[in-house]
Structure formats: structure tokens, C-alpha cells
């Protein structure tokens, strides 16, 4: 699956959820789960046995081919929920994979709700935290007037900062976001999209060479 195919599928999935699901937190969590499911097909996860100083042999997991799939995931989520990068000359709310603006924050914790696009805002928090760290979070919050948005950045940017190229962290992302922003109506992602040890033991076949990932759609 190429980058373009992956993003198109994620866009269609998001657009369908926007129409049929009324819980905005659930929409967000399910899109994240779908995005991790799609991005992890870029390259397999490989278990590696380590030898520690104490003599134990813990297993750690890495992406094959030295890929950082988390970078691809962040770019996919940004393209679909926020819009293309300004670098491509399009920008926020634009681009071939942008799924549209959806207003509302049902399913978000009470103090994080407003009537505007909190799905996009939460994703911006994660993306800012991932790429720009604490300084990015600080700058984003400095610009915020609205208390709900400020709190949303406070909750979501640390998730982006926590996120690493470790496949196990990558697979936990949807639930981590749900725990950061959701109330009790916002449920765990669909079982098929959740992380499980079986998924690691049976990685899906790699549909494309990782080099294809680096190509930008024209």
C-alpha cells in the first residue's frame, strides 16, 4: 500500500465516521486506530532478544528496515484531520486527503468541550508535541485564548512528546489519546484495531517496499 493509498483509505474512513458517528471522541479514537492499522503495514515489527547485565533475555520490538513508522503515522493523521503541509502550497483545511472540518466535542471530557473542531485541535496537540516537544506545546498554549483549547493542548501535547518510534508505543497511541481526552462514553477502539501480542506474532505481509513511502503524491 502506497502513502497515497493509505491516506485515501483513512480519509474515506474518517468521512464515513463523520456522517454516522455522533461521539466526536470516538471518531477521533477510531480514526487513530485505523491510522495505526494502516501505517503498521509499511514494514513488519520484528522481535529482538536482548541480553541484559543481569543475564535475563528480554524481548524488544523494532520496525524492520530501520524505518520510523511513527513519522509516517503523524503525517497521515495531519494530512487527513488538519490538512496538507504549508510546504506543499496548500495548507490547513486543504489537500487531497483532508477529510473535512467537523464541529463539536461530544465524548470529550467536559472541561475540553467547545462547539468548534476539537478533533482537529486534539490532533494538532499530538502533532505539535511529537515534532516540536515542550517548546511547541508552550508556544501553542501561549497563543490560546480559549480555556478549553488550552487544556486540550495540555492533555494532548504530552501524548505526542511520549510517542516514540517504539512499535509498542505506536500501537498504544489510540487508547493513550482516549485516556487523555475522553469521558466514559468514549470507548476503546474496535477490538480488531487494538494492539495485541497476537498481532505482533503474526505481522501482516508488507505490501510495498519502504522506499515507496518516501514518495510524495503529485
Amino acid at each position: 500500500m502506497t502513502e497515497a493509498e493509505r491516506r485515501l483509505e483513512l480519509k474515506n474512513f474518517a468521512a464515513t465516521l463523520f456522517k454516522k458517528e455522533s461521539n466526536h471522541c470516538q471518531i477521533l479514537v477510531d480514526i487513530y486506530a485505523k491510522a495505526t492499522g494502516l501505517a503498521r503495514s509499511i514494514t513488519p515489527i520484528i522481535p529482538m532478544e536482548m541480553t541484559s547485565m543481569s543475564g535475563s533475555r528480554p524481548t524488544i520490538y523494532k520496525w524492520a528496515h530501520g524505518r520510523n513508522v511513527t513519522n509516517a503515522l503523524m503525517d497521515d493523521l495531519k494530512a487527513v484531520l488538519i490538512g496538507s503541509s504549508m510546504r506543499t502550497g496548500e495548507g490547513r483545511g486543504k489537500g487531497p486527503y483532508f477529510a473535512g472540518n467537523i464541529a463539536g466535542a461530544d465524548g470529550f471530557r467536559q472541561e475540553l468541550r467547545d462547539k468548534f473542531n476539537q478533533i482537529q485541535h486534539a490532533t494538532a496537540g499530538v502533532v505539535i508535541g511529537y515534532w516540536h516537544g515542550k517548546i511547541g506545546e508552550w508556544f501553542a498554549r501561549l497563543l490560546e485564548d480559549e480555556p478549553q483549547d488550552d487544556l486540550l493542548y495540555e492533555q494532548t501535547a504530552p501524548v505526542g512528546i511520549w510517542l516514540s518510534d517504539n512499535p509498542l508505543d505506536f500501537l498504544k497511541l489510540p487508547n493513550k489519546v482516549r485516556e487523555a481526552i475522553g469521558d466514559n462514553t468514549c470507548l476503546k477502539p474496535q477490538p480488531i484495531l487494538q494492539w495485541s501480542p497476537q498481532m505482533l506474532a503474526n505481522p501482516p505481509p508488507t505490501p510495498g517496499l519502504w522506499e515507496r513511502e518516501t514518495k510524495r503524491p503529485k
Partner: peptide
């Protein structure tokens, strides 16, 4: 009611 900035765009 709300002003957001991200990636050189204002909403």
C-alpha cells in the same frame, strides 16, 4: 468565538 493557529494558517 475562537481563533486557532497552526502551520501558518488561522482558523
Amino acid at each position: 468565538a475562537d481563533t486557532d493557529y497552526f502551520d501558518r494558517s488561522w482558523q
